[in-house]
Design a protein around this nucleic acid. Structure first.
Lengths: 213, 213
DNA sequence: CCATGTGAAGGTATTCACAGCC
DNA sequence: GGCTGTGAATACCTTCACATGG
């Protein structure tokens, strides 16, 4: 099954597989079976095979998947071979933490610009990046930066997204806990940390809770 | 339809509704229609009605939903009426940011304890919380803290989760970019920030990318 | 007349089971 | 024998359309 609509859930899992492949590449093997990868990343082996099958023949029956070839393939599908630069808006506690976060690297992604409205912050360096005035967000287009992370207060989120969209940004990771609207050409993923914590108690049965003391 | 299996996706949306209800409570109205709430939070009105219908009759036909009653109902379903305390493990950049993060409050959640392995950090105060030695995680049981946030390096994540599970913690929000195993009684939600950013480029069409300048 | 609640329909994703290939 | 790739079956979630109630 060569050409097919790719389920959104599959796209969501691709970075997991990529991370898993990177991790298992250190072992010296050059091939990995769907079962081994499954154990490593915590997804069923048939799910993995199905996911990969959407993109064509990555594996060899009886042998498994070539780690290098597969990793390169996934990177290409995710466009990580072309898109490498991201900007950050909002250098508060969370924003600063993200600037120093080493996890983006394995995907080839790099935060290369940071903006804030606070004049006290503008001009200072955080994790090797000079903070620029938020008014200069419009320079992102000529700098060919098409990804942005929004870590501003909730009340400033929509305005920030509007500015980013006007500056030609095409993908936004939003940490502000609110709905933001953007033109169709801009993909927004909202990651609401408190929301994730808030749905956790649901899974704790009330009865067990009492005996917990 | 009074008693029914509640879809996981519905549970995931409940905190969004709760946030929306809080936000619209300031307007002075005491009722809200599924349509108004839909506009506010960015979910279809029929989806909202279906979600609420799983729990019983929250609304009044022709009038809408009583904001206060509905908010209380959702809180109860999510167990947010009983579970209020969370612990943080790993006071690095991200952990510190989370300690100062104001967003948990609207759900009634509070980070009341923080742990780290670094002796230099132990004993110091961050956002009004005294950092304790990670060896003291086992005190969580008698302190009746059943939620935890894991913000430690990837290599320490599994050990941390093991310690938390042994300490009676029942829900874990994990920021470490790796699979972690836990006993069935412990619900783990992994939030991999870099992964979310990494799937964003997929949605940027290659052709448009070129014309971007 | 207005807005909820819900069966039924439609769509999407997961799981299975096994044919096909190394 | 081992492991991939995939149609078919199943489960899950969303969307619709409308009957029902204030």
């Amino acid at each position: 099954m060569r050409y097919h609509k790719i389920p959104d859930e599959t796209v969501r899992r691709l970075p997991i597989y990529l991370r898993g492949l990177m991790g298992s590449a250190g072992q010296g093997l050059d091939h990995i079976s769907s079962q081994s990868l499954a154990d490593f990343v915590g997804v069923n082996s048939w799910q993995i095979r199905k996911d990969f099958s959407y993109f064509g023949d990555f594996g060899t029956p009886g042998v498994g998947y070539n780690i290098d070839k597969l990793a390169k393939g996934i990177k290409k599908i995710l466009r990580l071979d072309v898109i490498r630069k991201a900007a950050l808006v909002g250098v508060g506690d969370l924003g600063s933490a993200l600037l120093g976060y080493p996890g983006f690297k394995i995907y080839g992604l790099d935060i290369v610009a940071a903006f804030d409205v606070d004049p006290d912050k503008v001009g200072s360096m955080v994790s090797g990046i000079e903070i620029e005035d938020a008014a200069r967000i419009d320079t992102l287009r000529q700098r060919e930066i098409s990804l942005a992370i929004v870590a501003v207060p909730r009340t400033a989120a929509q305005l920030t997204v509007d500015k980013l969209a006007a500056a030609g940004v095409r993908g936004i990771l939003n940490f502000a806990p609110c709905k933001v609207s953007a033109p169709k050409r801009v993909k927004v993923i909202t990651l609401d940390i408190a929301m994730e914590l808030a749905r956790l108690p649901y899974y704790i049965p009330r009865i067990e809770q009492m005996s917990e003391l």
